[in-house]
Nucleic acid binder design. Structure first.
Lengths: 231, 231
DNA sequence: TCTGCGTGCGTACAACGTACGCTTGCGTAC
DNA sequence: GTACGCAAGCGTACGTTGTACGCACGCAGA
């Protein structure tokens, strides 16, 4: 009797709860329904489980968020390095940005949370390695890493916040509305804004990202040149 | 009887509720007790009022957050411009960073929220004006503005998250703990990390900010030089 | 004096995170 | 076969949150 397959009165006929399955469900939930949807009850329901069952595998909502962050960090692709430091740093920056923008809701959710888990350590090591090979000293490498990280994080966060309205059409409409609002301002109050005019929303966000990245790397190159000249 | 000063059975003997007073109380609350303390009930209590009274002046928590954001943006000091574009951009970047770091809790709270109010327009106009005078074209000015904004926002956010543990002593301890954790890693797993070693936390955050800022502005200068050469 | 009407607030409700303790089924010792 | 222990799952309950609803009061105009 105990082996009777009909004995499914328990909801036990399901893949069993694990940390990984919980994290996966949480990510899917946020992807579909936005950051506010990440509640313990919703995650549990998605797994066909009761809310309190999650606490057998996760110490609480906070830890779940940390695990989600770690899972995202682990997903950052590791483009093979070429040996050209500039190309390598560009690749790293683009990969990280792409990973963050793939899940804008989570990006917004997670930027207000430090790296409590060490999930970003491989990325950090990669970046520092490239900087070292490029000729940076220890101090310079640390500072350059921070500069690059700050820029990429800031850009991705800004874009992710703007992507909160999910659909592409809605995003375009919002951009246009913002531009119209700016255009409607008194030109004498904001002369520079009036000067740029519609160009304020011209160009893709990709282009903007690349511009800033190029400027930053130009700065790195200049620093390296000065450093080399001193030696 | 109605004019009897003893008629204070109502709690009406208080400065009266206004949007401004509510926003002010909210900011003070977050400053003192962290982002989680910003609840409608807590704000009301700080004003000696009932929770629902706030809703006469503010449509809800969301609008209150927007108002707080606007108040912070309005607080950014406007250092007089010198005419030297590089010095002016540096001053703007430092002012914004300083304003954000003055209230790290609020910075964390607000970065996940786009500028729904137009409070940052004066700043935007200022920056674009400097870029225009520096010789940027419309498109270039917009991109440079974004690059600078992304960097400053990213740096300030990152620092603000780290500053969540309020006291200076606690911050230092946390930094040291993080460094120790990194040092304890297997050097063969993270060779570049082992290479930088204790330098990972050397230097002030101010220095790091200045380094990235200088690199970015070097990149701007290079762009301007190329642009001038083409013309 | 009567009639609004804006301001403040008390109550109530749904949703949240989660502490506590019960049930249930399996692995092992006798 | 029987008893036991243990871990996984979950039901209930509590405190806290944002806020909808409607009442009470004091002052303006008739």
């Amino acid at each position: 009797m105990s082996m009777d397959p009909k004995d499914t009165n328990r909801a036990a006929m399901r893949p069993a709860l694990t940390r990984d399955r919980i994290v996966e469900a949480a990510i899917a939930l946020v992807d579909e329904s936005g950051p506010d949807a990440l509640t313990m009850r919703a995650v549990a329901q998605r797994l066909g489980a009761g809310a309190m069952s999650l606490y057998r595998h996760v110490s609480g909502r906070d830890e779940l968020l940390d695990l989600v962050l770690a899972a995202m960090a682990a997903e950052v692709v590791a483009t093979p390095l070429t040996g050209d430091w500039r190309a390598d740093l560009e690749a790293i920056a683009r990969d990280v940005r792409a990973s963050l923008l793939k899940r804008p809701h989570l990006t917004v959710l997670l930027t207000s949370r430090s790296g409590r888990g060490g999930a970003e350590l491989p990325l950090l090591d990669r970046t520092l390695g490239v900087l070292r090979a490029a000729g940076f000293g220890r101090r310079g490498a640390v500072m350059a890493n921070h500069a690059l990280g700050n820029y990429v994080a800031g850009a991705a966060l800004w874009e992710a916040v703007g992507l909160a309205g999910t659909t592409g059409a809605e995003r375009a409409a919002r951009r246009q509305a913002a531009a119209d609002a700016v255009m409607a301002l008194a030109p004498d109050q904001f002369p520079a804004l009036a000067w740029v005019g519609p160009k304020l929303i011209a160009g893709s966000t990709d282009d903007r990202f690349e511009f800033g990245l190029a400027c930053l790397l130009d700065g790195f190159a200049a620093y390296l040149a000065r450093r080399l000249a001193r030696a």
